[in-house]
Each structure stands twice: as structure tokens, then as C-alpha cells.
Simulated assay, not measured.
Amino acid sequence: MTPESQLRAGEATARPCTDRSEWDGLVNELGGHPLQLWGWGEVKAAHHWRVERLIVDDDGTPLGGAQILYRGLPWPLKSLAYISRGPVCAPEDAARVLDAVARHLRSTQGSVALVAEPDWDAGSAGERGLEAAGFRRTESTILIPRTLILDLQQGEDELMAAMSRTTRANVRKNLKSRLEFRKVASEAELEQVLAIYRETARRAGFGIHSDAYYRDIWRFLGGDSPVVAAFDGDQAVAFVWIAKSAGTAFELYGGVTEAGQKARANYGVKWAAFTAMKAEGCARYDLNGLLNDGISDFKKQFAQHENLLSGTWELPLSPLYPVYSTGMPIARRALQRGRSLAKTGARQAKGALRRLRPGA
């Protein structure tokens, strides 16, 4: 670390971490989200991002950390830094951790802004920490803050009781059917899952990544990303794909074939995912976002409540932040749009810079 990135005496200090076991140990010990795990960073690094893990020490003791994803931006903006469902720390330590992270980024990366979407409830102490560290709330959301989180520390009877009557009946019917619910155990079964996901996307009309992206999740996250599927004989007919840390299960993807829909396998496989993650020690199961659509209506059948997380927060890091925030609205959606950023963002950046020149 450069001298400039060292914090003043008595303040927390951010240091890069290059050891997977140390990093994942910190995430799991401090109750971090699975999107902060080493393997998730490797997935993103294989698909147009750059990744850095920072551990924040307080007098030699780890206070928290953050896995930073960097998306390159057109010159002279350099990059946008993003913390997905982080930082990893107690909410009351947020200000110190984020301040240390921001100082490190300013002195070593030159990123134009830092975006954070913590795994904290709205109104928590963490939000006060974000404000104290200079972050401001933004509506340019990447991960949806309105969601449904199940308390897996409840008994199975309590989880069942929270469902709608029809959903509970469909789950129980599935459990008595010929369907088998278990984790995907081979690459051949994974290919069945990918085919189901392509079919589901076509039927429902939503966009998905290439198959290579999902294979990389399977490869880089390994046991931290189980896929629970419903099998009719040797054929998968529905699945739920999860990322999990020690305390949190986070639903990534799901899909069902037309035959699986007729058998209501999408109900049984959801229940199988809940109980599998409960058995593995996860205390909470996040169904990952609620919108006003049919998929969200399906999710809401499994409980009678909703959760609201802190949302999206942004910290300016560079004098060029006004160019980024006012002249590059599409670039600010880089985290969602992927490769299309480069061409469109470059045009907008050039136009914004021309307008800022004397005499323009």
C-alpha cells in the first residue's frame, strides 16, 4: 500500500487481500453476503470486471472489508467502483470501514465514484454510517432493495404457515409426488438446468447471460453456489440456483419447464431450496428482489411480509464526478448494461467534456 493510502494514526487502514481462505473466512465470520465471497469476484473478473478485496484493520484487528468490482470507463474517468451487497462489517462500523476503503481508492485507483448496496435493513445504523462517510442515496439501483427474506431459524411448520393456502397445498402435493428434489451433482445435470433457464427466459421474455457465465458461477463458487432441482426420473424439470455464505442464502436464478409447470414443480423446488439452506446453517434466505411482475407475485406466495434494504448509495471520488453524473447517464448504468457501456458512454463523455471546455 502506498503511503498516501495509509490512514492517520488511530484510524482504520485498508489493505489488499490476496488469500482466498483469509477473505472468505472474514466474510463468513462477520456475517457477510455471498456476493462478497471470493468466488463471486472471480466470476465477475472473468466477465469484464476487475476485482480487489480490501480488509480494513483497526490497530491490527480486522474490522471489516469490501470486495470492490471495477468497471472501466472512457478516459479520463478511469473506472466506477462497486460494492455488491457490502461492505462486510457490523452496521455500526460502517463509517470507519467505508472511510478507509474510500481513502484507499482515491490514492490507488482514481475511480470516479464508489457505489455501495449494503445488505442492511433500511433505516439501520449502517445508513448513518454511509452518510457519515460522505455517501449520498441514488435512484440508479442495481440490486433491488425491496425483497423478501425468510427467517430460516424458524421451524419448518412456521415456514409453511407463512405461505398462502394454495402454495402450501402445492408444496405438500409435490412432496408426495414422484418428483425427486436434490442438488445438481454433475456437469451433465447443470447443462439440463441451463436449457431450462433458456426456455424460461424465452417464455417469460427476460434477458439472460451466455451459458459460459453460469458455468463460471458453478466453477468459481463451487459449493457456495448450490443448484437445487426437481427431477422427474433423470430429467430436471425445475431448479433454484443459490449463492450462500455462512449465514445468508441468496437466490440467483430459477426456472421451470412446461412439464414442470403442469406438475407445480416450481413450488416444491422452492421449498426444497429453503429446507436445504436451513439444513446447511443459513439463518436467512433472500428471494432477491420484488418488482410488480408475475415472478414477484410468485415469490410473495411464500410469506406474508416484505423487506426493504438500504438501497443504493454513491460516493464521489474524483473531481470529474460532475462529468460522470451529469454527462454520462448511460455510463452510470454500466453495472447493468455490460459491454454496451463502452461505445455509448464514450460518445457521451466526449460530448460532456467538450461542453466543459472554455469557449464551448
Rank of each mutant, 00 (worst) to 15 (best):
L35G: 02
Q36D: 11
Q36E: 13
L37E: 05
L37H: 07
W38L: 06
W38M: 06
W38H: 09
G39A: 04
G41C: 10
G41K: 00
E42K: 10
V43K: 01
K44V: 05
A45N: 09
A46S: 14
A46T: 09
H47Q: 12
H47Y: 14
H48S: 14
W49S: 08
W49C: 06
R50K: 13
R50M: 09
V51I: 15
V51Q: 11
E52R: 10
L54P: 01
L54K: 03
I55F: 04
I55E: 02
I55Y: 02
I55A: 02
V56L: 07
V56I: 11
D57M: 14
D57V: 06
D58Q: 15
D58R: 15
D59V: 12
D59Y: 09
D59E: 15
G60W: 09
G60P: 08
G60T: 10
T61D: 14
P62C: 12
L63Q: 00
G64M: 08
G65T: 05
G65P: 05
Q67A: 08
Q67V: 02
I68C: 02
I68H: 03
L69W: 03
Y70K: 12
R71K: 15
G72S: 15
G72I: 10
G72K: 12
L73H: 04
L73G: 02
P74A: 12
P74V: 06
P74W: 04
P74Y: 07
L77F: 06
K78Y: 07
L80N: 02
L80I: 14
A81W: 00
Y82M: 07
I83D: 00
S84D: 15
R85T: 05
G86M: 05
G86A: 09
V88P: 03
V88M: 11
C89F: 06
C89D: 06
C89I: 08
A90R: 08
A90W: 01
P91H: 01
P91Y: 00
E92F: 01
E92R: 10
A94Y: 00
A95C: 10
R96A: 12
R96K: 11
R96Y: 00
L98M: 14
D99L: 07
D99G: 15
D99M: 04
D99Y: 02
A100H: 05
A100S: 12
A100G: 11
A100R: 04
R103K: 14
R103M: 04
